[in-house]
Nucleic acid binder design. Structure first.
Lengths: 370, 370
DNA sequence: TCGTTTCCCGCAAACGATTGCGTTGGCTAG
DNA sequence: CTAGCCAACGCAATCGTTTGCGGGAAACGA
C-alpha cells in the first residue's frame, strides 16, 4: 500500500483569502498579542477560516522573519546513561509550560559530532542551549559564549567561562560517601574517578582526597585511578588495573554509578564479594539501582530538579542576556543500600566480629547480601 | 559576568560581497551539487570568503525556500524507559551518516502532548517521522498518513494502517518464554500484559495464550491481567491484584522488563522469593538487567538494529513515497538468567528435588530455548 | 568573418510569515 | 462644515536562501 497523495498544506494566504482579508490582517487576527488591533468580527471570521482549513502556521517562515524559534537545544553526551533521561524530563517540564520546544541531541561524547549538532541547532535559530557535555577545556563553548549564545551548563561546568551552571554538590556528596565508609571502619579507600577532563571528574577526585585526609585515612595516590570515560567498561578496566597493582583497599568510591557497575563486573569475574570483601559507592542514583545485586549505595542528585533549574535559568537568560551568570549547586544526599559494609574482619563496637551484613537501614534498606 | 554583545552572524550576502560575486553565484559555489556551474577560480574565492567570515548557512531560510530540512522527527513515548535510548542510537547512526538530523521528542504517553509535538515537528518541515508511540486506535497517525507524511513505526504498529513498521518478533519471543517455563516444570503461568491498546501489549497477550495452550497448560483467563501502562508501578499493582485474587501460579511472564521490575517490588514487600517461589520473565532485555537481583531472564530484542532498520526504511520512503509499505519483524532471543527456576517442590529428572538455585548459566547464556 | 555553442554568472522571483507605515472611513469636537 | 482623531485594515518590504532564466563573452567550426 502506498501513501495517498499529499494534500497541499494551507498557508496564511489561503486563510486570508477564505476570510476575505489581507494576509497581514489574518496574521494579526491569529496572533493573540495583536488580535486587539483587529475588529472582533473580522478576527472571528479569520479564526474560523483557519480552523476550517486546518491551518498550521509555518514555523520555518516565522523563524526566518522573526529570528526566533521558541526552541532550545539540549546537548546530551550519552542518552544511554540513565542519568540523563530524568534530567531531560526536568528540562522539558519547565520549558514546555513556557511554550518552548526542546530539541534533544546526542553527541556520543564525540567532539566532532558535538560541533556538528550544535551548529545544526544554531543554524535553526534555537534561542538557547542547555549543555551537558562541558569539558574543562572547551574551545567550542568559549566560542559560543563569545558569540553571545544563551547557554546554561548542566551537571558539569567549565570554570574559566562565565556561563551559568547547575550541578549537584559533588564535593559534599563525595565527602558523605567517604564519611560513610570511614564510619564503617574502612581505612584504605580507593577512588575510580571519572575523566579528569570534566569538572565532575576533577571535583569529585579532589573532594575525595580532601575527605580522606580529613578522616585521617590513607591518602595514597596509588589508590585513585582515572577512568577514560563514564562507562561501565572503563570502570571495570580501572578496577582491574587497580587490583593488579595495589592491594589492601577495602572500599571504592566510584566516579558515578556506571563506573560502580563496572566494579560489579569485576567482582563477578574475580570472585570478590560485595560488600563482604569490598564496598562500593556510586554517584547520581540513577534509576533501578535499588534492584541491583547488591543494591548500590550511592549519592543521589536531584535529576529532575537539575533539569528544571537549568531550564529556568536559561529562560531568564534568554529574556535578559545581560544578567550576571550565577551558578547553582543542588544539594545531594547519600543513600545507603547494600553495597557498603564494614571491611572484612572488622571489629565493630557491637557484638559480632565477623564480616556480617551491614546494619539494616530503614526505608530504602533492601536486605544486604552476604 | 554578562554575555558579550552578539556579533552579527554573516549571511550569504556578506560572503558574496566579500568574494565580489552575486549571492546566486555564492550559493552555487558553496553547494557541491551546483559547484560545477561555477568556474573553479570563482568557487575557490567564494569558499575562501565563507571560511574567512565563518559563514554558516541559515537552515531556516533554506528550509523555507526548498521546503526540505534534512531533519526527521523521532517520537518516543517515554525516554526514561531504558529500552528507548539504544533505539535512538540506532536511528541516529544511520540517519546521521546520511546527512540527516534527528529531532527527538518525548510524549510522556500523553496524547495531547503527542499532538502538539508532532505538530511542531511538522511545522518545522521535518521530512519524516519515526514513531514509537503507536496505539491500536490512533486517529492522529491515520490523519498524518492521509496527509502523506512519510512515517515508519517502531516497536509498535497500528494494524489498520498501511504504515511500515519494524518490531521485534513478539509472538515468537513470548512462545520461547512460555516454553522455557514449561520445560522447567511450571504448569500455571500468569501473564502481566502491557496495555492492550498497544499492538505489543495485545500481540504478546495473544501469543501467551496460544503458547500456554500449545504446551497443554492451564489457559485460565484469571491468570492474565492487563497493566495500564508499561511501568514498574503498574506491573507491581497488577501482580498485587493477581496475588490477591488468584493462587497457584508459579511463574509470570511480564509484558516487558519494567513490568517485571514491578514484580520484584512485590516480591520484596510480600516476602516471596524469586525464583524460589515464583519465576519471572521480562521482555526487551533493556540494559543492566544482568546486574539485578536476581538477574532477569528476558527476551532480547535487537534495540540498535530496530532503530537502524526503521531509519533505513524511512529513508527509502522519503526518496520514494510510492513504494509499498513492507513491515519487518526482527528476530528475538530468549536470554536465560537467574529469575527463572523450576517451581517449588518440583521433581526434576535430575537429582535434586528441592527448589534449588537454577543451573548456573555461563556468562550471558543466551541459550535459545527448545 | 560570422553564426553557434558553451561556459559563467547575474537578475529577480519565489518560499510563508511578520510588521512599520500609510490609507481609509466613521466619528467627535469646535 | 471642516479639522482632527482613532480604529481597522491593506501595502509592501523583509528575513536568507535557492533556482529558472537570460545575457554576455569567450571559444569554436565553417
Amino acid at each position: 500500500m502506498t501513501n495517498p497523495t499529499p494534500s497541499p498544506v494551507p498557508t496564511l494566504r489561503d486563510v486570508a483569502q477564505a476570510a476575505g482579508v489581507h494576509t497581514a490582517t489574518a496574521s494579526r487576527a491569529l496572533n493573540p498579542k495583536t488580535r486587539q488591533q483587529i475588529s472582533a468580527e473580522t478576527a472571528r471570521r479569520v479564526m474560523r477560516a483557519a480552523q476550517a482549513l486546518g491551518y498550521q502556521p509555518n514555523s520555518v517562515a516565522r523563524s526566518l522573519k522573526t529570528s526566533r524559534s521558541a526552541t532550545v537545544g539540549l546537548v546530551i553526551p550519552d542518552l544511554t546513561n540513565p542519568l540523563f533521561p530524568p534530567i531531560v524530563r526536568g528540562v522539558e517540564s519547565v520549558l514546555e509550560s513556557d511554550g518552548y520546544n526542546v530539541w534533544i541531541v546526542n553527541t556520543d561524547n564525540d567532539e566532532e559530532r558535538e560541533r556538528a549538532k550544535i551548529e545544526s541547532l544554531r543554524s535553526r535559530q534555537v534561542e538557547g542551549l542547555i549543555v551537558a557535555t562541558a569539558r574543562l577545556d572547551h574551545p567550542l563553548l568559549r566560542q559560543l559564549h563569545e558569540q553571545g549564545v544563551a547557554m546554561v551548563l548542566i551537571n558539569r561546568q567549565v570554570p574559566d567561562l562565565p556561563i551559568p551552571a547547575v550541578t549537584g554538590d559533588d564535593a559534599t556528596g563525595v565527602a558523605a560517601a567517604v564519611g560513610h565508609l570511614a564510619e564503617l571502619g574502612h581505612t584504605r579507600i580507593a577512588h575510580l574517578s571519572g575523566p579528569l577532563g570534566t569538572s565532575t571528574g576533577r571535583v569529585r577526585a579532589q573532594a575525595f582526597r580532601h575527605a580522606v585526609r580529613d578522616h585521617g585515612l590513607a591518602d595514597d595516590p596509588a589508590l585513585v585511578i582515572e577512568c577514560a570515560r563514564w562507562s561501565e567498561e572503563d570502570g571495570a578496566a580501572a578496577l582491574r588495573e587497580l587490583l593488579a597493582r595495589t592491594t589492601g583497599f577495602t572500599a571504592v568510591v566510584a566516579g558515578n554509578d556506571l563506573i560502580a557497575l563496572g566494579c560489579y563486573d569485576v567482582f563477578a569475574e574475580s570472585g570478590l564479594s560485595c560488600p563482604g570483601d569490598i564496598s562500593v559507592i556510586g554517584f547520581n542514583d540513577m534509576p533501578f539501582l535499588d534492584k541491583l545485586r547488591p543494591p548500590l549505595t550511592t549519592v543521589a542528585v536531584p535529576h529532575h530538579e537539575l533539569g528544571a533549574e537549568a531550564a529556568r535559568m536559561l529562560l531568564d537568560r534568554i529574556d535578559d542576556p545581560g544578567r550576571p551568570a550565577r551558578s547553582v549547586l543542588l544539594p545531594v544526599t547519600l543513600v545507603v543500600r547494600g553495597s557498603t559494609a564494614p571491611p572484612p574482619g572488622h571489629h565493630h563496637e557491637a557484638a559480632d566480629a565477623t564480616a556480617s551484613p551491614p546494619p539494616a537501614h530503614p526505608g530504602n534498606a533492601t536486605a544486604p547480601s552476604t
